[in-house]
């Protein structure tokens, strides 16, 4: 039976939140550095990347949020058999409220009818926590903070799309993604990272898209067709010239990550989850001895 000290785990979760909000992952920083080098000397794009990299460093050193919109807090938790989900949920809530007190998170949960802010970032569906059981003997908490600006430009298409001439195949998928990124311009804090969900129903399609964003920037899709499409999209989307913050430049998108789900014969959804450059995600593994490692 997996056991843990509740008070200690709450503090370990708080550290996970602090890392997510203030410390951009290494693979993302390296991707931004490479993009900066690729932009022309004296271009607005290069100068924007310079400011972005300075901000990333400042946030890390001072332990303050990289972006004031600390987003929807999305947890993906893997648990061994027998570990209770309600207790872990309560501990995540406790750590969340404390993170607001410590200014790692903004109070970001607003009652949709009254407009009242809950004040502690906890509300209906906030934070969002998804549990899955697995065979390993340790718990893994993955956390992503996804802000409202990029969530607002995220979108869903259903194929066929007559206006775009997009049919029910990978070529049709390609066309709607190009359209989505062109419509987004700099509004989602470009350069963005795309999580794409192909298939599923309305909601699982979006969930597939978002789950892709837990992948590393440098990984390769195990499905060779999708791997090819990811590379093609990355190259072609950067031809759009939107550039960082929409100021123009060679970098519109930093990465494309695609996943699929079986669909009904009648439905063909393509969901595009746009993530801003402030691509905040970290994970924590808790072993049976109560020790944690962060990534």
């Amino acid at each position: 039976m997996f056991q843990y000290d509740e008070k200690v785990l709450k503090d370990q979760l708080l550290e996970l939140i602090r890392l997510a909000a203030t410390d951009l992952p290494k693979d993302v920083v390296e991707s931004i550095q490479a993009a900066q080098q690729n932009e022309d000397e004296d271009s607005a794009a290069r100068s924007v990347f310079g400011m972005i990299l300075k901000n990333i460093e400042l946030a890390r050193v001072e332990s303050t949020p990289i972006c004031q919109d600390t987003g929807t807090n999305i947890y993906l938790v893997h648990i061994p058999e027998g570990v209770g989900m309600r207790k872990l949920t309560a501990l995540i809530h406790e750590a969340t409220a404390e993170a607001v007190d410590k200014s790692y998170l903004r109070p970001n949960a607003v009652d949709s009818l009254t407009g009242k802010n809950s004040g502690n970032n906890i509300g209906e569906g906030q934070p969002f926590i998804h549990f899955e059981e697995w065979d390993n003997d340790y718990i893994e908490f993955k956390l992503m903070l996804k802000g409202g600006g990029c969530e607002n430009v995220s979108t869903q298409y259903k194929l066929p799309d007559v206006g775009l001439g997009a049919g029910r195949d990978l070529d049709g998928v390609y066309k709607v993604i190009v359209d989505a990124v062109n419509q987004a311009q700099g509004l989602g804090c470009a350069p963005g990272i795309l999580g794409i969900g192909v298939g599923g129903d309305r909601s699982t399609s979006h969930l597939t898209a978002k789950s892709q964003l837990f992948r590393k920037m440098t990984d390769t899709n195990p499905n060779s067709d999708l791997a090819k499409m990811e590379s093609k999209l990355l190259a072609d989307l950067n031809e759009l010239g939107v550039g960082p913050m929409g100021f123009g430049g060679k970098t519109t998108i930093l990465g494309v990550k695609m996943g699929t789900m079986h669909r009904l014969p009648a439905s063909f959804f393509v969901s595009i989850s746009y993530m801003c450059w402030a691509y905040r995600r970290h994970s924590m593994i808790l072993n049976v001895k109560g020790e944690v490692t962060y990534d």
Binding site: V48, M51, I52, K54, N55, L58, A59, E62, T64, P65, I66, C67, Q68, G149, G186, C189, M245, F247, C276, W277, A278
Partner: peptide
């Protein structure tokens, strides 16, 4: 006037 999105730590200064 366009400020840089996500520059929260720097702009707070």
């Amino acid at each position: 006037l366009h400020a840089i999105g996500g520059l929260a730590a720097s702009l707070a200064k």
